[in-house]
């Protein structure tokens, strides 16, 4: 009885009363950058009770952020490291430029 009530009445009601998924997903995204207003927080909370797609959206976005923040500098950790090496030619080119510039400055 209770689930029927929830499915048949409350869920469509929330769907109708809260802003669309487009607006809610914008608010979910913005909540990752600044606090939402009380009104927005209530809207998001209500919407998430009725919309599993937006729940997924939020959970997936938060997981992506969490993973990035755990390992900000080590993108190469589980990859082929050679792909992430400064190419030897470029390395020599940079050294060459550094030598040119430093000899310029000593001559002047």
């Amino acid at each position: 009885m209770k689930t029927t009530l929830k499915m048949k009445i409350i869920k469509p009601m929330i769907d109708t009363l809260t802003p669309s998924c487009e607006i809610i997903s914008q608010q979910i995204s913005r909540s990752m950058d600044e606090p939402l207003t009380m009104r927005e927080r209530v809207q998001v909370k209500l919407h998430l009770m009725a919309c599993k797609l937006c729940v997924r959206y939020r959970d997936q976005l938060l997981a992506i952020r969490k993973r990035i923040r755990e390992q900000p500098e080590e993108w190469d950790a589980d990859s082929d490291v050679s792909e992430f090496r400064l190419p030897p030619e470029k390395r020599e080119q940079i050294k060459e430029k550094l030598r040119d510039r430093s000899s310029d400055s000593t001559e002047n």
């Binding site: 797609l53 937006c54 997924r56 959970d59 997936q60 993973r67 589980d78």
Partner: peptide
């Protein structure tokens, strides 16, 4: 948004995530 194969926090810990991202 579809259901990911695993819980999002577990999924993003799996190998290859950073390269895909």
């Amino acid at each position: 948004p579809r259901d990911w194969r695993r819980d999002p926090e577990v999924q993003t810990e799996t190998e290859g995530f950073l390269q895909a991202l």
